[in-house]
Design a protein around this nucleic acid. Structure first.
Lengths: 211, 211
DNA sequence: AGTATGTGGAGGTTTACATTCCGCTTCACT
DNA sequence: AGTGAAGCGGAATGTAAACCTCCACATACT
């Protein structure tokens, strides 16, 4: 029932549905996917009943948000790949600026619960695969150009991102943002070609992330 | 009532107390400080009643574990500072090998709840301060020796560590460990002197972490 | 204007966790 | 080896929070 196109929604209902997804996106990004349904309804300025009619349970909502967020991120990645002068610049841009990235990583890698749900969703899995393919393509290009260190795989980047974007509670929001930015910048410097020390083990690749 | 030395515990009681702390340490490290008390009791092979007699509530337990974990970490840091040939090596050793580091970071930076509790504990705050002083000392040495990039502060490292050590759930424990190791190695390379790009903002220092 | 569709949110139900309590066990001391 | 104090386990109870249903009322579409 995630998307049920055979009965087009009434205009107000469609509007509410969008509001709910937007609110869920914001709240999931901030507090993870296990916040009470009521909070989401409140943020969307909608009654709980409405939320439940549109998404019969939390899983459905998570799936819908994930589809949305993955699609946005994919678009962002493709845009960066085309618009930036080099693959490396595209990677840097994505890592630094994407909030969809944050949500996606959170859903796909940090919450065991969400992972479980998404793993069983055909559409999401496909999107995910596309995303990783796109990422790998960028990385190969950046490695060929000698900008990205050769001993990392897409899995490494994914892990790095997932870690970096789990922002710890900070003194103030500004410090929180600053610390995330700096952290990512340090990671990026660690990803440049000709770094100090060879990495342990072997590169993590796409398949290492599948669970 | 965390430590009540006026009535020395019976031998078996003392043993159980130690078991409980050890179990709590393991479980907190793995799953954060909000796991059900019952899980901790089970892991310690002890009845819930016992747990509650020794630690009247979760806060007391968290405090006790924190004191223990901070002390261990401080010892580890000092040992590394003395035993390793350079300050840089000491930093690397600590980042790579310390599980107490993981727990400490988790308690001190990632869980809002734990933070709240610890912030109000005199002893813990002092330990924390000592720890950061020691870290800063190492960093200054490593920067003076030209090994650590000059534009980072102790706060940056603390944030980095807290992020890195929040291990996402992985396909297998081996992959989990590998990904953490690689992630840390990448961060370390990003921390070396003469990296690619200057970091944004200003160094995060000790005080930025106080909340 | 009439009807199908959508809405809000009060409240019953479920769940999960914290905490207490007390009959039985183990220790420590003589 | 006997005895009382200290300790133990875990079933039972309390409690808070989140889930989700339901229905009188509202809104959109034709």
């Amino acid at each position: 029932m995630t998307a049920d196109p055979q009965a087009p929604l009434r205009a107000d209902a469609q509007r509410n549905r969008d509001l709910i997804i937007a609110a869920a996106r914001a709240i999931f990004t901030e507090h993870g996917p296990e916040v009470p349904m009521e909070d989401i309804a409140r943020a969307a300025k909608v009654g709980i009943g409405t939320l439940y009619r549109r998404f019969p349970d939390r899983d459905a909502l998570i799936r819908a948000v994930a589809v949305d967020s993955f699609a946005r991120l994919l678009a962002e990645v493709r845009a960066a790949a085309v618009e930036e002068p080099t693959a490396w610049d595209a990677l840097v841009r994505i890592m630094h600026h994407s909030t969809d990235l944050q949500l996606t990583a959170q859903l796909a890698m940090l919450s065991a619960k969400a992972l479980q749900i998404l793993k069983e969703d055909e559409a999401v899995c496909e999107q995910r695969e596309e995303l990783l393919v796109e990422l790998e393509r960028l990385m190969v290009r950046a490695q060929a150009a000698g900008q990205l260190r050769p001993d990392v795989g897409a899995g490494d980047i994914a892990v790095l991102i997932a870690m970096a974007l789990r922002r710890p509670p900070a003194k103030t929001p500004e410090i929180g943002r600053l610390s995330t930015d700096r952290c990512i910048a340090i990671m990026i410097d660690g990803l440049r070609a000709h770094p100090g020390a060879p990495l342990p083990g072997r590169p993590l690749v796409r398949d290492d992330l599948r669970r």
